[in-house]
Design a protein around this nucleic acid. Structure first.
Lengths: 106, 106
DNA sequence: GGGTAAATATATCAATATTGATATGTGTAA
DNA sequence: TTACACATATCAATATTGATATATTTACCC
């Protein structure tokens, strides 16, 4: 592999991927959303359970969840009046785990 | 490790880390910035070289670079009239490489 | 069934931030 | 002193944010 084989030209495909990746980054760029997703790595949680850990109000949690749901990063399941959220995208799991490894000390 | 040892409570320290991670995510949430950083994984590049691959104008590239520089994610080196940029934060490298692995097919 | 409370969702909105474009400034080489 | 490589200033358009208010869905009790 020669030196000039390094990435110094982006194909349309690569631009597309960069766009998708940037979109995911945008979803993770909010502390509340990031913490929500971080919790969901440990399994599904109800809205109330998620709310307890963020110091924000319920409507805000629901708003962030609605956004993550629209983007396909989480999914919802209803049981009675409780709604449980869980991760729905492997790429999200991958990125969150990597963030945890790089930002959280042992 | 018992089931209830999973993350269902955030310490102040964890909130801090989440904030920092979210800040990095915000920097990566722009396609141009993401592509710039992606190129820089392969080593330092001049502004003109970076510009060639993004379809945006020079001032925009410089603006994004200025932001990344202020945040400490990249560093600049002058040689004559050319300025070479390179990555300055290991966490950025880690995240970018992970993104490449998850988003870019072999 | 009617009424009420719990759990969550949606609507709206003002404040603030981000975006990329245009114009102009700065430093260096020839 | 002209051109090249890059930086900065400014600005209008657009997007994001979290807050408040209200609606929806389900459970429960009478």
């Amino acid at each position: 592999m020669t030196e000039d084989m390094k990435i110094d030209h982006f194909t349309d495909d690569m631009r597309l991927m960069a766009g998708e990746a940037a979109a995911l980054m945008k979803s993770l760029s909010n502390q509340a959303r990031l913490m929500i997703l971080c919790q969901l790595v440990g399994g599904e949680h109800s809205v109330a359970a998620l709310e307890k850990n963020l110091n924000t109000k319920q409507p805000n949690v629901s708003q962030q969840l609605a956004r993550l749901r629209m983007e396909g990063y989480v999914q919802a399941r209803r049981d009675g009046r409780t709604i449980y959220y869980s991760l729905a995208d492997d790429r999200v799991i991958s990125v969150i785990k990597n963030l945890h490894a790089t930002f959280c000390p042992t």
